[in-house]
Design a protein around this nucleic acid. Structure first.
Length: 158
DNA sequence: GCCAACGTTGGC
DNA sequence: GCCAACGTTGGC
């Protein structure tokens, strides 16, 4: 199956790209997503080996700081039925999980982050979801061309 | 901290 | 099944 490409957002104050690197095996489960569109991408489409643009949001500056990869495809997000979790959902249960997550692993940090400003300034990325006004989906598909362009920018070859 | 844009909820 | 109210996101 062809590699697919994604963008995933995280607030660095909450969980940064460095936090991912410093996690055991530089891997974490991407729990806490409570949006149906984002859930469907993780549950139905993300596959082991897919590559992820890791985006820092709600910070200065916002932008893409590096690459991660999917190491486990979608499976139930157990935090949904944990009453002590910040992401507890009373409608979720082990029998009816409702929410899903994937495991991702830190892969490569860009020498220079690709800021949102730089993304917006690149007209070849005008259709990229993350630069659209009001776009707040935390897991977004990215085209191979967009991924390659961002990768080149991050490597200083853009 | 402001606020526009968006997704979800719930009354009808 | 509509839609107003509400809560959240996230750039600025």
């Amino acid at each position: 199956m062809a590699t697919k490409y994604w963008l995933m957002k995280s607030e660095p104050d909450c969980f940064s790209f460095d936090d991912l690197k410093n996690s055991p095996h530089s891997t974490t489960h991407w729990d806490g997503v409570r949006n149906y569109q984002a859930r469907n991408f993780m549950r139905d489409e993300m596959q082991v080996g897919d590559l992820i643009l890791f985006y820092h949001s709600s910070c200065k500056p916002a932008g893409i700081v590096g690459i991660a990869e999917v190491v486990r495809a979608g499976y139930p997000d157990h935090t949904a039925w944990d009453p002590n979790s910040d992401h507890f959902d009373p409608k979720a249960s082990p029998e009816n999980p409702r929410w899903y997550m994937v495991d991702i692993r830190w892969k490569e940090k860009f020498p220079k982050m690709v800021t949102l400003q730089a993304l917006k300034a690149n007209l070849e990325l005008a259709n990229m979801k993350v630069v659209q006004r009001g776009q707040r989906l935390s897991v977004q598909p990215v085209t191979p061309e967009e991924f390659q362009m961002v990768y080149d920018m991050g490597r200083g070859n853009g």
